[in-house]
Design a protein around this nucleic acid. Structure first.
Lengths: 159, 159
DNA sequence: CCTGAAAACGGGATTCC
DNA sequence: GGAATCCCGTTTTCAGG
């Protein structure tokens, strides 16, 4: 069973959310601990599921993706199986990086990264509107990114 | 000056976007290379800026954040200095994980993670609407997350 | 049971081919 | 790009609080 987080756990998680390539020794004295207990805490945080993965973050611009677009879709799903199919389809499109079910007239929100507006326009017609059940789409184009972090707030929750 | 990516670079980046905790040796034979050239490529990809960071991804649910909300703000910025101030303010709020400048009546889009709807409601009134220049807000609440990846598509761009 | 020191082992970083 | 080397960091073990 998973427990709460004490102050040191919080410091460890905050540090690893910024940079997980640092050594255990480095991390240890940043959080005020020695190597082994620090290492054991990291293991525990992983086992308990607080740490989901360690990944490399790439630079979207350098990869040629300068556009972030949020698109709201209107879908028509009566059966759960159709919905499942839609989710699988959407999940398999690498340019769709996020997908949420939302309240309102348009019931799905996706975030798409695109090389440029022309590519996006074709993407809507050739890919999104061809997904089964998608009836309508409305896009919000981001001109510039003012903040984008993968770091979540972490607070002490220790019993 | 930064170059393009060949097929092996692409395989390395794809692998590291999934899991950067694997050893160089492991990665090396996954991409069909031996240790040292593989290590050298990783260094180069970092230096060239393709790899921005290596971070731990935490589980939002386990940290008590079960709600993802997208909010569109209407702001009134005449001077660039006001805009700068707004960006700094918004960037300092940990629950605001993304912030974009967008086209349209409402000119800013933020993504907020929240513990629950009650918290979010208070957050709007106590924090967002108190930011200087924010005049109006419209929220899209995500009920469930169908996809959420930090992995970007990577393609061969070698000369 | 959790912490810290120290030893054993494996992987990262370097050199040479 | 590959092989062999060196050395540091991860991981394990053990003693103490």
């Amino acid at each position: 069973m998973p427990q709460g987080l004490d102050e040191i756990d919080v410091r460890i998680l905050k540090a690893l959310q910024e940079d997980c390539s640092i050594s255990t020794a480095e991390l240890a004295d940043r959080v005020g601990l020695s190597q082994s207990p620090c290492w054991r805490r990291i293991q525990r945080l992983r086992e308990d599921g607080f740490i989901r993965a360690q990944v490399a973050l790439l630079d979207a611009e350098k990869l040629g993706y300068s556009l972030h677009v949020f698109a709201q879709l209107k879908t028509s799903y009566l059966a759960d199986s159709d919905r499942e199919k839609f989710i699988r389809s959407v999940a398999s499109i690498p340019e769709v990086v996020e997908c949420y079910s939302v309240l309102g007239e348009r019931d799905v929100l996706i975030k798409v990264i695109a090389p440029d507006i022309k590519w996006y326009q074709e993407f809507i017609f050739n890919t999104i509107l061809k997904l089964p059940g998608v009836e309508d789409i409305s896009s919000i184009v981001a001109l510039s990114e003012m903040k984008h972090t993968t770091a979540l707030p972490v607070r002490v929750t220790k019993e």
